[in-house]
Structures are given as structure tokens and as C-alpha cells.
């Protein structure tokens, strides 16, 4: 820059004592130069120390005051965990997740205690286990700040997916552990589990997530869990032979989900979305 022209020492001295007798235009030029020139700022510091005892004492006073002020003021509290976690799991979701874990634990307990004649309860419950949490992902009753969430720019499919993923991250390891103890391998229930989760989200675009998740869980309980327990055999749907069909179903649901993704963004006249 204009480094060749440094501020003359005499001008700096006058500037340090209040700038009397320096024209406004010269003052601008001096200050513009000082902003970009460290050596001149250093010389200004020396000039102030030499020529202007009142500035020096003012600085010392401010320094002393700030030191006592800072010693007295409270520290910013350390960042707490909930702040970050809430971006994935809103506080209203935690009780639902705890309930899900309890259900899985109960199924596991019955499996371990019961006879080997019945099909594994963990295996039967696994496909619908995430639905309890998924139902609470986007509903006014279970998220106190839902009205604020719905009116925010982040509202929409991405937010629903994000929270559903958080549900799966909690539920999946629990199911895997329970399945490992009872011999219900994840290979048999993983695809059905994903299909039900995605299915609830897709159906939720039409009738509301809470109703959709409830309907699917009820259908599975009535159509598969109850007959299997009564007949005391593992349903065909959870045999390895059915896996290609589940995979196909997931693909179809994924397409439907993406096509109608705007449904969660809001602006609904249907009451389910907001109430």
C-alpha cells in the first residue's frame, strides 16, 4: 500500500496529544494509514507513553476496572448436551424411546422365560418397534414446540427423516442385542423394520404420522403377531425367503416418499397436520 509514506514523528506526537492543529483531511489520512501500518501504530504507542500522561492513566484505569469486573462476572456456562441432541431428538421423544426399549426388553424377557415352542417375540415385535417413536416425530401432542417447528424454515421432510433416523439409531441396537440373545438374527427383521418405518412416513404424508404409525402397528399385531402366537410358528413374512419382497416394498415406498415429500413442509388445510 502507501507504506513508503509513514506518519512523521512530529505529527504523531501531535496526534497523540489530541490532534490539535491537524486538519480533518490530514486526520483521515493519518488514521487510515494507522489502521494498515503496524510500525506506525507502535510508534504512536510510544508517542502516547511519552507525551500524554492522561491517556496512559486512563488506559491503566480501564485496565484495572476491567480486571475486577471480569473477576466478578459469571463465566458462560459450559455447553450442555441437550442443546445439540435436541436437533435430532426433541425432548418429547425421549419417553417414547424409553417405552420402546421397555417393550423390547419385555419381549426379550418373555422369550428367555418362555418355552421354545412359541416363535421368538423379539422377532415378531422387531418390525413395528420403531413405530412407537416414529409416531411422535411429527405431532403436536408429543412435541410442545411443534407449532414453532412447523412454522420454521427447517420444517419438512428433511426434519421428519432426521428425527426418524434418530429413533432408528436408538431402537436398532436394542433390537440387535435382544435378537442376539434369542437367536432372532437382524437379517430376518432388518428389512421389515425399515419397510414399516418408511411406510409409516409415506402413509403419514396422507393421513398424519401419528395415525399412520398406529394403523400399521395395529395391522401387524392383528394380522401377524396374534396368528403366529396362536399357531405357534414363525410367520412366513419373517422367513428369509420373503426378504426380496420386503426389499422391493422398500423401494416402492421410497419412491412414494420422495414424490410426496412436500407434504411435511406445511401449509396444510387438513387438521391432522397442525392439531
Amino acid at each position: 500500500m502507501r507504506s513508503a509514506e509513514h506518519v512523521p514523528a512530529a505529527v504523531l506526537d501531535r496526534y497523540a496529544t489530541g490532534g490539535a492543529g491537524i486538519g480533518a483531511d490530514a486526520l483521515w489520512a493519518i488514521e487510515a494509514h494507522l489502521e494498515g501500518c503496524a510500525p506506525c501504530r507502535e510508534r504512536l504507542g510510544e508517542a502516547v507513553a511519552r507525551r500524554s500522561p492522561e491517556t496512559v492513566s486512563l488506559l491503566a484505569r480501564v485496565h484495572a476496572n476491567l480486571t475486577t469486573e471480569m473477576a466478578r462476572s459469571r463465566q458462560m456456562p459450559a455447553r450442555r448436551l441437550p442443546r445439540r441432541v435436541a436437533r435430532w431428538v426433541p425432548p418429547g421423544l425421549w419417553p417414547r424411546l424409553a417405552m420402546t426399549l421397555l417393550v423390547v426388553a419385555a419381549a426379550l424377557g418373555l422369550d428367555l422365560a418362555g418355552s421354545r415352542v412359541l416363535p421368538s417375540l423379539v422377532l415378531l415385535v422387531a418390525p413395528v418397534a420403531p413405530l412407537l417413536g416414529v409416531a411422535a416425530v411429527w405431532s403436536v401432542g408429543l412435541d410442545p414446540a411443534h407449532e414453532l417447528v412447523v412454522a420454521s424454515p427447517r420444517a419438512g421432510f428433511y426434519m421428519v427423516l432426521r428425527r426418524s433416523l434418530a429413533v432408528l439409531v436408538v431402537v436398532m441396537p436394542a433390537l440387535t442385542a435382544a435378537g442376539w440373545l434369542t437367536g432372532a438374527s437382524p437379517a430376518r427383521w432388518l428389512l421389515p423394520c425399515l419397510a414399516f418405518t418408511a411406510g409409516a412416513l409415506a402413509l403419514g404424508e396422507l393421513i398424519g404420522l401419528r395415525v399412520a404409525a398406529g394403523a400399521l402397528a395395529l395391522a401387524w399385531t392383528a394380522g401377524v403377531i396374534t396368528p403366529s402366537i396362536l399357531a405357534a410358528r414363525t410367520p412366513l413374512l419373517l422367513e428369509p425367503a420373503s426378504l426380496p419382497y420386503w426389499a422391493g416394498l422398500i423401494a416402492v415406498i421410497a419412491v412414494a416418499l420422495v414424490l410426496r415429500r412436500d407434504a411435511y413442509t406445511g401449509l396444510r388445510s387438513d387438521t391432522w397436520f397442525v392439531r
Binding site: P82, R83, A86, R87, P144, S152
Partner: peptide, 17 residues
């Protein structure tokens, strides 16, 4: 969210925004 501090809650809302 009842367990959030005022600052945490408003930070959460500004993240939503």
C-alpha cells in the same frame, strides 16, 4: 422445552430458523 435454559431454547429456535 421445560428443561432447556432460555438461551438454549432460543438457540434451538434459531437453528430451526
Amino acid at each position: 422445552y421445560r428443561r432447556f435454559t432460555v438461551r438454549e431454547f432460543i438457540e434451538y429456535i434459531s437453528w430451526l430458523k
